[in-house]
Amino acid sequence: MIRVVVVDDEQLIRAGLRLILEAAEDITVVGEASDGAGALEQVHRLRPDVLLLDVRMPGIDGLTVAPDVIAAGAKVIMLTTFDLDEYVHRALQAGAVGFLLKDTPPRELAAAVRTVAAGNAMLAPTVTRRLISSFAERGPARRDVARQRLAALTARELEIVREVARGHGNAEIARRLTMSEATVKAHVSRALAKLQVANRVQVAILVYDADLL
């Protein structure tokens, strides 16, 4: 069972998210919070697998608390009303592994929670990828630094991380590059280690910063 905590300052939104998620047989909402302080308390007390975290809340907002809840061991999906929110880019850099709009269809919401709980990033092609590419500060200096870091990868690893940045999962990458899913997973793991990043979202940010798409 995937354990989820929902964090939003609007009670109606929290109730709706709980109703959607608990309709899935493999997901349970173990707690709720209305601000960042409550989110951190719930993470320490309940140890959820996934935290759905609103970006903008009174008091301590999601962006401010994201690094702390991630450090405490929760996998974070950011929630927002806006499909282009510059603040979410900072949260992704801090280690959040997904980004959803609050009007995401119920089936996609549950699928995103499963994806993140399984240890993968939720890179929605129409939202997260556009957000990363729109708000990454890709000046010449940043581009050069990103390219220097990516130079540590083999040609095959670079090919694979470019597919990661396009929002493809391991199975899709394996199909596109004609290799086994286990081989793709091994290449991704080695790339994460070489680049010293925590997850696939941070790899994607590097690829976008390097302007390699």
Rank of each mutant, 00 (worst) to 15 (best):
I2T: 09
R3E: 11
V4D: 01
V4G: 01
E10V: 15
L12Y: 14
R14S: 10
R14V: 11
G16Q: 09
R18Y: 04
L19A: 14
L21W: 04
L21N: 03
A24S: 15
E25W: 07
I27G: 05
T28D: 08
V29P: 02
V29G: 06
G31S: 08
G31T: 10
G31W: 14
E32N: 08
E32I: 07
S34N: 08
D35K: 12
G36H: 08
G36P: 07
G38W: 07
A39W: 08
L40G: 09
E41N: 14
V43T: 08
V43Q: 05
P48C: 07
V50N: 04
L52V: 09
L52A: 09
D54F: 01
R56P: 00
P58G: 10
G59K: 11
D61K: 11
D61W: 08
L63P: 02
L63S: 05
T64D: 11
V65D: 01
P67I: 09
P67R: 07
V69P: 00
I70M: 01
A71I: 06
G73F: 12
V76D: 01
I77P: 00
I77F: 00
M78T: 13
M78L: 15
L79W: 06
F82W: 10
D83E: 09
E86A: 15
V88M: 04
V88L: 04
V88D: 01
V88G: 02
H89T: 15
L92D: 01
D103C: 02
P106R: 09
P106Y: 06
P106I: 06
E108G: 06
E108T: 12
A111P: 01
V113C: 06
T115C: 13
V116Y: 02
A117P: 00
G119L: 02
N120F: 14
L123G: 06
T128L: 15
R130S: 11
S133I: 08
S134I: 05
F135W: 02
F135E: 01
F135N: 00
A136D: 10
P140A: 14
R142K: 12
D144H: 10
V145Y: 09
A146F: 04
A151S: 15
A152G: 13
T154P: 03
E157Q: 15
V161L: 08
E163L: 15
G167W: 03
G167H: 03
G167I: 05
H168G: 01
G169K: 07
A171M: 10
R176G: 00
R176Q: 11
L177V: 11
L177Q: 12
L177G: 02
L177F: 06
M179S: 06
S189E: 15
A191F: 03
A193Q: 15
K194D: 04
L195S: 10
Q196N: 13
Q196P: 00
V197G: 01
N199H: 06
V201W: 02
V201Y: 01
Q202R: 01
Q202W: 00
A204W: 07
I205W: 00
D211A: 13
D211W: 05
L212E: 13
L212H: 07
L213T: 12
